[in-house]
Computed example of a mutant assay.
Amino acid sequence: MVDDKTKKGKRDRDRVAAGEEYEVRYLMKKTGITESQALALIHRFGNDRQTLEREARKLTG
């Protein structure tokens, strides 16, 4: 299901929605990890963007 781009409410930029393909791709591109690694990190650590980016950097060294 795609985000409703017309909604102007509170932003959730500090979260990564695993169900939104473009958000997972952005995390992959920014950190250099694979899709399976990105999804595993979301499953393990939750959807906090800062935590996910930190843990992804540990994977890529």
Rank of each mutant, 00 (worst) to 15 (best):
D48A: 14
K8V: 08
L39C: 06
E20D: 15
V16E: 01
A56M: 08
R15N: 11
L52N: 04
A18C: 04
E23Y: 01
S36N: 08
D3F: 13
T6N: 15
A38G: 04
T34E: 10
L52T: 06
K8C: 00
R49I: 05
R13K: 13
T60P: 04
H43L: 02
R57L: 06
K8T: 08
K8N: 11
V2A: 10
A38E: 03
T60L: 13
Q37F: 06
Q50Y: 14
D3A: 05
E53T: 14
V2G: 07
D14F: 14
G19T: 09
L39F: 01
K10L: 11
R15W: 06
E53L: 03
E53K: 13
R57W: 06
T34R: 12
K8A: 06
T6S: 08
L41H: 11
T31Q: 09
Y22V: 00
T6Q: 01
T51D: 04
R25P: 00
E55K: 14
T6G: 07
V2C: 05
F45P: 01
L27M: 08
V16H: 04
H43E: 15
A17H: 13
S36R: 08
D12C: 09
K10S: 04
T51F: 02
V16W: 09
Q37G: 01
L27C: 03
R15L: 15
D48N: 15
A18L: 03
K10R: 14
K5P: 03
A40G: 08
T31M: 13
A38W: 04
G9H: 06
G61H: 03
K7Y: 15
T51Q: 07
K29D: 13
Q37E: 15
R25Y: 04
D4H: 03
R11N: 13
A56P: 06
R13G: 15
M28C: 04
T31E: 13
N47V: 12
I33Q: 02
R15D: 08
G19V: 00
T34S: 15
Q37M: 12
K29W: 01
V16D: 08
E23K: 14
G61P: 04
T60E: 02
L52I: 09
L59R: 02
R44H: 09
I33M: 04
A56F: 05
K58T: 06
L41R: 07
H43V: 00
R54K: 14
K29V: 02
F45I: 00
K5W: 11
I42W: 08
L27Y: 01
G19I: 01
E53V: 13
D4T: 01
L59P: 06
Y26T: 10
E20G: 00
S36L: 12
L27P: 02
A40Y: 03
E55M: 12
R44G: 01
Y22F: 00
T31H: 03
N47H: 14
V16T: 10
L59M: 13
G46P: 07
